[in-house]
Design a protein around this nucleic acid. Structure first.
Length: 589
RNA sequence: GGGGCCGUAGUUCAAUUUGGUUAGAGCGCCGGCCUGUCACGCCGGAGGUUGCGGGUUCGAGACCCGUCGGCCCCGCCA
């Protein structure tokens, strides 16, 4: 990439350029001053190369080079030379060669750094976020950002080739009930009224289908004013997709081809298609999660039938109240008392009463449960889990929901602690047949599990008003290595069903009209059957990059408390600005 | 809203378990030496309101309360 300042980039040079006179520009990654000769590792986006300054050639220049500090920006003219055999650096891509400096131009000095620009730097996150522009100089971060770029380009190429049109949708839109808390934007022109930033372009993409665009996609920013996690930011990027005249298989198939393409182009990894599928209920029963990680076993089993014959009060009472007894096996591990105590504390925090470990020592079963068990019951338990004496079994007794939740979390935690997760594997999975609705105790009503535009399964239509919790949705989630990375559904495309759905959600016709009237009306003007999906692009890139936090693949992320440490947002604004918007701050402590 | 871990030199950490002399080390920074290093090496030096506020104590980096900030989790996230 030749420019006014350089003829080549550092990383692109090799022995093939031997004897060429080149000009490079970049940052001083490291300087090694030997009193006589001086070595400088020059870094740019493309890589690192060693520059050699010989005092015999130019003493003042060599001395200037010897005084350079890390991260000074310099340009160097010099000759590409092959290193003597014994001085080749095999750890460096350009290690066969070096640049014999003829001319040094210091373009900018750098102050002593708050932390060093190295991949193995272990600066605190706080400092990294504060000096994000320095953090982003680290090769690993540059790699992540470029991977993100390439993934985005692959997505665009794929959808373009598949006949999708990328259409931008508004960022200033109508605030709607249901779902996450909106970020609000006050209107200056219409005082007292607000726009909302989109939680997703859901309604717009449906309107685009009604408008006849057939296939739409967009790589788009979405905003949700909720608390953060390692895999959640208040603003995040979706690959938003919608298709007309499709059923589930059309969407799933398209997504599988996109995923296969991404993994091939970005990582050179072949993904087998079609992806495995699990029904929601099966995922919950076997893994205690609707987004299970299938890279390790430890499947959960229901042993209520066995437990009902054990005269252990907790089992008896739990089962009498309609709860379950479930557990899973951990192969080839013995947990110390201390460890089982810690794990018990862990599940207690999730809300279950306790955790029962079953293990063996010297051929004897050891467990708080042992004194309640006949020999035959011990054998039966062992057989149920197909366990041997090197294994450990963990059991909980509680409501079905708590059994799932606690054992699902515990399964994941133990696998991580014991390094039982094959981190080189990518394990995609479809989860299907989600319940359409779930009961919200706080609001005393049913809420949409996915969103209120999701089509109920036709076979379950009759249950909508009589047994809403039993209605299955035409929804699907794509799970990768235990992360939900995409979710979508076939939508409701006619007004009567959408009215019915709002009714089930406890939304009055007036309220539905007020909040979603524009969509309801549009459904009456020839809405085609349609469906789609949206990817969490940050999570997807995080997994492609082998990271465990999406902050590592977002250039300027927020902290856990939604602050931007670099620019100090959110910040206060002047009274003038507030006045213009007709706003008054009500500070209460 | 709740829980857990953490906050000591520019930086990464130690000293906290059991409160007790002058708060140490690596890297960086400054000065000197060093002509084939690539974590260059050697010698010397500067650098601290122990996040902030209060309390307990003869004495607090350490213990207690509050607060601010970071990370992780629960709730929340259609």
């Amino acid at each position: 990439m030749k420019t006014e300042y350089r003829t080549h980039t550092c990383g692109e040079l090799s022995a093939a350029h031997e004897n060429q006179i080149v000009v490079l520009a970049g940052w001083v990654a490291k300087q090694r001053n030997h009193g006589g000769m001086v070595f400088i590792d020059l870094r740019d986006r493309e890589g690192l190369i060693q520059i050699v300054f010989h005092p015999e050639r130019d003493k003042p220049m060599t001395e200037r080079a010897g005084r350079l500090r890390m991260e000074a920006v310099i340009a160097v003219r010099g000759r590409v030379t092959r290193r003597p055999q014994e001085m080749v650096n095999k750890d460096l891509r350009t290690g066969e060669i070096e640049i014999e400096a003829h001319e040094l131009n210091v373009l900018n000095e750098a102050r002593p750094l708050p932390f060093m620009i190295r991949d193995d730097n272990d600066a605190s996150d706080e400092l990294r976020f504060q000096y994000r522009y320095l953090d982003l100089r680290r090769p690993v971060m540059q790699k992540n950002m470029m991977l993100r770029h390439r993934a985005g380009q692959t997505v665009r190429r794929f959808f373009d080739e598949e006949g999708f049109t990328e259409i931008e949708t508004p960022y200033l839109m109508k605030s709607t009930p249901e779902g996450a808390r909106d970020y609000l934007v006050p209107s200056r022109i219409h005082r007292g009224r607000f726009y909302a930033l989109p939680q997703s372009p859901q309604t717009y993409k449906q309107l685009l289908m009604i408008a006849g665009y057939d296939r739409y996609f967009q790589i788009v920013r979405c905003f949700r004013d909720e608390d953060l996690r390692a895999d959640r930011q208040p603003e995040f990027t979706q690959i938003d997709v919608e298709m007309s005249f499709v059923g589930e298989e059309d969407v799933l198939n398209t997504v599988e081809r996109l995923m296969a393409r991404l993994f091939q182009e970005i990582l050179g990894i072949h993904l087998d298609t079609p992806f495995p599928r699990l029904a929601y209920q099966e995922a919950m029963d076997r893994y205690g999660s609707d987004h299970p990680d299938l890279r390790f076993g430890m499947e959960i089993q229901d042993i209520s039938d066995w437990a009902c014959r054990v005269p252990f009060r907790v089992f008896q009472e739990t089962l009498r109240k309609g709860g379950r007894v479930r557990g899973f096996k951990v192969e080839n591990t013995f947990f110390s008392r201390r460890q089982t105590d810690d794990l018990t504390e862990y599940v207690r925090l999730l809300g279950v009463g306790g955790l029962i470990a079953v293990q063996w020592r010297d051929g004897e079963m050891i467990s708080p449960l042992v004194r309640f068990l006949e020999d035959s019951q011990k054998n039966e338990l062992t057989r149920l889990f197909n366990a041997c004496e090197e294994d450990a079994i963990f059991l909980t007794a509680d409501t079905e929901a708590l059994c799932c939740e606690s054992l699902g979390s515990l399964r994941k935690k133990i696998a991580e602690n014991l390094n039982r997760v094959d981190t080189n594997r990518y394990s995609p999975l479809w989860v299907l047949d989600f319940p359409l609705l779930e009961w919200n105790e706080e609001e005393r009503r049913y809420v949409a599990r996915h969103h209120p535009f999701t089509s109920p399964n036709e076979e379950d239509w009759d249950l909508l008003e009589t047994a809403p919790e039993k209605v299955r949705a035409r929804a699907y989630d794509l799970v990768l290595n235990g992360y939900e990375i995409a979710g979508g559904s076939i939508r409701i495309h006619n007004r009567p069903m959408q009215d019915r759905m709002f009714g089930v959600l406890g939304l009055s016709p007036e309220s539905a009209e007020d909040k979603f009237g524009f969509l309801l009306k549009a459904l009456e003007y020839g809405a085609p059957p349609h469906g789609g999906i949206a990817f969490g692009f940050d999570r997807l890139v995080m997994l492609l990059a082998g990271e465990t936090s999406i902050r590592e693949v977002i250039a300027f992320p927020k902290t856990t408390s939604a602050l931007s440490l670099m620019d100090g947002s959110p910040s206060g604004v002047g009274l003038e600005q507030l006045g213009e918007l007709g706003l008054k701050i009500n500070r209460k402590d």
